[in-house]
């Protein structure tokens, strides 16, 4: 018993220490965002005279609302698109019989290996030819389908017992209805996990929005951080407030749906 308590105390000590180290850079960022410019360099983790002025200033100096809305629109559109295209394809790959089915699944698996960061250059030229540069289309359309999504949902749909579909078929349901009334509701956990990682990935995109957007009104929150960092180099409290506002949506989503995120990352670890 005593040994167990000692072990537990050691665990708390180590886990507490590691948590502190991991969270410290974020805590100092929060602290900076709550300080006036005069207090910015005062030592200590707690701001001496806490103020929300930097947040107000971040909002008044930069179209932060617009940047966040852009990110929200783009990430939501990508997430919904990935869920729809993946579920459709995964359904066909598990429930329909046609020639070349295994080959097409193999293709999705092979595409898992294609590192997106390296195709950004030809993708940029393609989007340019399509006349999509500096538009929402460029930010959304290339990412509406995901090999990871097809792979994960296909693996999940295979675990749904045949009986569910048989019952629906007896009632005269066609494939579309079976997809909508059987496969969709039963895949909710897998769809949730896929949605979580897709949204996170889309919200975090950096290199792509950096190269395809030019006008301020189209920039996403990530690129806005770069913009604020360069414009406000000396005023770290305003930059910090802006960064916290960009962090909040994913942080809140993570805290509310931690299970879906963790499951999605563990399943999608294959792709990363």
């Amino acid at each position: 018993m005593r040994r167990r308590l000692q072990g537990l105390a050691l665990t708390y000590l180590l886990a507490g220490g590691l948590s502190f180290l991991l969270v410290l850079p974020l805590l100092t960022l929060v602290s900076a965002s709550l300080r006036t410019e005069a207090d910015l360099y005062t030592p200590g983790l707690l701001p001496p005279n806490p103020t929300l002025a930097p947040y107000v200033e971040a909002f008044s100096q930069f179209p932060l609302g617009r940047f966040l809305l852009n990110s929200l629109v783009v990430s939501t559109a990508i997430t919904l698109g990935v869920l729809a295209t993946s579920l459709l394809a995964a359904y066909a790959l598990t429930r329909l019989r046609f020639r070349g089915r295994e080959l097409l699944f193999g293709l999705a698996v092979a595409l898992l290996l294609v590192p997106g960061e390296v195709t950004f250059l030809p993708l940029y030229l393609l989007v340019d030819r399509l006349g999509w540069l500096d538009s929402y289309l460029a930010l959304v359309v290339p990412f509406l389908a995901s090999p990871l999504g097809v792979f994960l949902l296909r693996q999940f749909l295979r675990t749904i017992p045949e009986d569910y579909f048989d019952a629906a078929r007896m009632d005269g349901a066609n494939h579309w209805q079976m997809l909508w009334h059987v496969a969709l509701p039963l895949s909710a956990p897998a769809l949730g996990a896929l949605a979580a990682v897709t949204f996170l990935g889309a919200w975090n995109m950096y290199l792509w929005p950096l190269v395809v957007t030019k006008s301020r009104e189209l920039q996403t929150a990530q690129i806005a951080v770069n913009y604020m960092l360069n414009e406000e180099v000396a005023r770290w409290n305003v930059v910090a407030a802006g960064a916290i506002l960009v962090l909040l949506p994913t942080l809140v989503a993570f805290l509310l749906a931690q299970r879906a995120f963790v499951r999605g990352i563990a399943l999608g670890g294959l792709k990363g």
């Binding site: 974020l26 960022l29 951080v225 995120f261």
Partner: peptide
């Protein structure tokens, strides 16, 4: 859950 840009600023 921390975006790259936020991590960089922090």
């Amino acid at each position: 859950a921390v975006p790259t840009a936020v991590a960089a600023v922090a």
